[in-house]
Write a protein that binds this DNA or RNA. Structure first.
Length: 811
RNA sequence: GCCGAAGUGGUGGAACUGGUAUACACAGCAGACUCAAAAUCUGCCGGGGUUCACUCCCCAUGUGGGUUCGACUCCCACCUUCGGCACCA
């Protein structure tokens, strides 16, 4: 067969058509005796366009899936669609098309692009979260959580984005702005909303981060720890003089309580509503409004003296009660004791309003400068004076508890997950409001609550479902009285919190999934996605897993043992975005360079966890390289029956081949630096070009077979083509991964570096295992070394066998 | 401010447990092939100095110290960039 030129168009079209025609080709085996491997990439929002950023994510997963197949695993590699959400609704309003139609069109488009890229998904397991057969189970879980007290309804000040015309979870607020509209400040709005009690799992979510160490990136775990924000301290009651009412404060430094010179309430605190009147009430209202639109950074501290006094339970002294704009209502008890001598914020506030500053901790050594926030020795603190901070803290918390005015307390930063959205395109919340029975969950037999097709979408204020009488009006399932259906829909992060379980049993109409299927496939062996989901999606998913475990549905505690967060794709120095106009779609990239080339370039240009600069020149290089491999293989297929004896060239080539097999295998098994895998493969091909003419037939045969296998996880189309061209039965990604031969990859001898005073001066080739003494002799007799030593005295000789000799001399 | 990651040629990056710094590519330069170009193949390619030349020497991994026979790698201090959290009591 003559040498063929590499043309990606026809070759890739041919193989993607063949793969599409065989629905089981990438399917996991039922009842397999092989070990299982579940590799998962985060499911995309169906925007309609796959771009080179998505491609990086999927290419990493695809290379891994193909490698695992070749290593003999039963691989589950599914894909689906995070299909609910605002963009569909907004696009629908703009184009006058139904969101479902718009979404399904986009899904079809993206699926076509996935196929062009050759990603090895088992499409029989596909899910789309906007279909009733999926979102029915969101509703089912919701009513299960209601039964367990994990769902509740509460009036609260909530984050409101005027652009989205809906509320946002705390996790969706970025720098005081909406995560989708980074320039629109989030407002505070009082609404009655549905919450999921994720805080019930705060402790476990934090504790078990320890179990994920090693498998999840440190920075993700650090971000989650930070987000959960556990803090240990104490709660103490200050009694309002004259009224007998208690103000409970939270503090991590109860040891400084003798230095508390005022109590400060958050403006939203209940006592403020009760006691603050007249002009002060107006000022408090202004404070709340100012805070609602408060943007980035620190804001000048402002306070209002309520005129009330509260009694410090430790000292018995009365202190003034203030309202402060820097005290958060949603954290701790919404009230603090201000200890200006030992807290920077309190110091700033009290200095401004001339409230006394009383030091009660001194440093163990050195001068006291205020504010002093370190640990030290208590002073002016009654019977606790003289104690070290840690001891004082413990003893004083115990004292508070013994005397009934406080206790040790743990506070979390994480808040319950507000999931109500006042929009149409989401899962209807399966609840009914009855005048006599109150809130009643929709019974299982009536699930799913179908999202009606005909709601009017305006993109304004209240949920579109509220203006759809056929949806709203319903009889109470308990008493039969005419009632009103809940019209809010669920946050789409509900959909993505458990979707990877549904892949295991995606058409189950009796249950969200069979526990048997989950037992086999879970946990996910490798989850791959962007670091932007480090807190939102990944905390919700961990929570959902624990919740399902406690419902008795599954037995794993965590969804995924390993998580990989790939870097972003950068074009022309910045992240791709529509605004910058630097987005490269999969279609454009494939037309111009080919799917294999795009995949190879993205794996080669940087280690996968780092950001990657897309350059056309670099991609052209990858295409050139694939052409080099293709020509080499096709022109050598004819030469397999030549005769000849192996010689020096064969030894060199086989050594390089086996070294390369080892290198790539190790990269897959450990750190995933595919850039170095591919570099090693390029070195091998360079070596093959050098020795091509001299190769014996047996070597040629081995080389041809193995280079195709080695390249297969990275560039599947071209490898399938070459495998077929070689007359081998496919598919190539189900062939056993090549193993390496230790004997063949050994070099002839050790290349010993000869150093004088740590600088390389010469080198020599010695047989492996040459003794230290012999190496030293050889080194000292080396002419170059001798001339460098000259007349100096040899002080010491360091010998590292098979590596180097370092001769230390002194003039 | 706190937490995390990273600083190596013109560029992307390599050096995995302290042991040949700059693998592999991109860009650039030169040569071969060609009437010519493209494609392809081959070679050169951190900075400075030295030699007719083979060669050889010095410097360089953000900065300054340290440990070591030996440091991109370990330790201390600092600078810069990126990411996360940010009045969390």
């Amino acid at each position: 067969m003559p040498e063929r030129t590499y043309s990606h168009q026809e070759l890739e079209a041919k193989w993607s058509a063949r793969w599409a025609a065989d629905p089981t080709i990438f399917a996991a085996e039922p009842n397999s005796s092989k070990p299982k491997y579940y590799v998962l990439e985060m499911l995309p929002y169906p925007s309609g366009t796959l771009h080179i950023g998505h491609i990086r994510n999927y290419t990493i997963g695809d290379a891994l899936a193909r490698f695992k197949w070749m290593r003999g695993f039963n691989v589950l590699h599914p894909m689906g669609w995070d299909a609910f959400g605002l963009p569909a609704e907004n696009a629908a309003i703009k184009n006058n098309r139904h969101p479902h139609e718009w979404t399904n069109y986009n899904i079809a488009e993206m699926k076509r692009q996935h196929r062009r890229m050759g990603f090895s998904y088992d499409w029989s397991r596909e899910i789309s979260t906007c279909e009733p057969e999926y979102y029915k189970w969101n509703q089912w879980f919701f009513t299960r959580m209601w039964d367990k007290g994990l769902v509740y309804r509460k009036q609260a000040l909530l984050n409101w984005c005027s652009e989205c015309a809906t509320v946002l979870a705390n996790e969706q607020v970025v720098n005081g702005c909406c995560w989708r509209h980074e320039t629109i400040p989030v407002e505070q709005k009082e609404l009655t909303q549905w919450f999921i009690k994720i805080t019930a799992y705060a402790d476990e979510l934090l504790q078990e981060i320890g179990n994920l160490e090693g498998g999840w990136p440190d920075r993700v775990l650090a971000m989650q720890r930070n987000w959960i924000g556990r803090s240990e301290g104490a709660e103490v009651d200050f009694t309002v003089a004259g009224s007998g009412e208690n103000i409970r404060v939270f503090t991590t430094r109860v040891d400084t309580i003798f230095g508390a010179t005022c109590v400060i309430l958050a403006p939203e605190h209940d006592l403020v509503k009760q006691y603050v009147t007249g002009d002060n009430a107006v000022a408090v209202k202004a404070m709340i409004d100012a805070r609602a639109t408060q943007g980035l950074g620190e804001v000048e501290k402002v306070g209002i003296d309520t005129g009330l006094r509260a009694i410090n339970p430790f000292s018995g002294e009365p202190v003034p009660v203030w309202v402060g704009n820097f005290v958060l209502s949603g954290y701790g008890t919404g009230a603090i004791m201000a200890v200006p001598a030992h807290d920077e914020r309190d110091f700033e506030f009290c200095s401004k309003y001339e409230i006394p500053i009383v030091p009660v901790v001194r440093p163990a050594e050195g001068e006291l400068t205020l504010p002093f926030t370190e640990y030290g020795i208590s002073q002016n603190s009654g019977q606790w004076s003289g104690l070290a901070t840690a001891d004082a803290r413990a003893q004083m918390a115990a004292h508070a508890k013994a005397n009934g005015f406080g206790e040790t307390a743990i506070t979390f930063r994480i808040k319950d997950w507000g999931i109500s959205r006042q929009r149409y395109w989401g899962t209807p919340i399966p609840m009914i409001h009855c005048a006599t029975c109150g809130v009643v969950p929709v019974p299982d037999k009536d699930l799913p609550v179908i999202l009606p097709k005909d709601a009017q979408l305006t993109g304004k204020g209240e949920s579109p479902l509220a203006r759809t009488p056929a949806f709203v009006n319903v009889d109470c399932p308990k008493c039969g009285a005419p009632s009103r259906r809940e019209t809010d829909t669920m946050d789409t992060f509900v959909d993505s919190s458990w979707y990877f379980y549904r892949y295991c049993d995606n058409h189950n109409s009796e249950a969200p999934f069979s526990s048997e299927a989950i037992k086999y496939w879970f946990p996910i062996d490798q989850y791959i996605g962007g670091v932007e989901h480090a807190i939102l999606h990944l905390i919700y998913s961990r929570f959902w897993t624990k919740m399902m475990r406690d419902l008795g549905l599954i037995s794993n505690d965590e969804p995924a043992t390993r998580l990989f967060t790939q870097g972003m794709v950068i074009k022309d120095g910045s992240k791709m975005s529509k605004n910058k106009g630097n987005v490269i779609s999969a279609d454009t990239m494939i037309d111009e360079f080919g799917a294999d080339t795009g995949r190879l370039f993205e794996l080669f240009a940087a280690p996968p966890e780092r950001d990657l600069d897309w350059t056309d020149a670099g991609a052209e290089g990858a295409a050139r390289f694939l052409g080099r491999v293709f020509r080499f293989v096709t022109r050598n297929i004819d030469r397999l029956n030549e005769t000849g004896e192996p010689g020096e060239a064969d030894r060199k080539v086989l050594r390089k081949l086996h070294q390369t097999i080892r290198k790539i295998t190790e990269d897959f098994e450990s750190r995933w630096h595919f850039n170095t895998s591919i570099a090693a493969f390029m070195e091998l091909v360079n070596e093959l070009y050098t020795h091509e003419a001299a190769l014996a037939p047996a070597t040629r045969r081995e080389v041809l077979e193995k280079i195709v296998l080695l390249l297969a996880p990275f560039a599947p189309f071209i490898c399938e083509e070459m495998w077929e061209e070689m007359g081998r039965p496919g598919p190539v990604f189900k062939q056993p991964w090549p193993s390496f031969d230790e004997a063949l990859l050994q070099e002839d001898g050790a290349d010993i570096v000869l150093q004088v005073n740590g600088k390389v001066r010469s080198r020599l080739l010695a047989p492996f295992g040459t003794s230290k003494g012999d190496l030293e002799k050889l080194a000292l007799s080396d002419p170059k070394v001798q001339s460098m030593i000259g007349t100096a005295t040899v002080v010491k000789v360091v010998v590292v066998p098979d590596r180097l000799v370092n001769i230390v001399v002194k003039a």
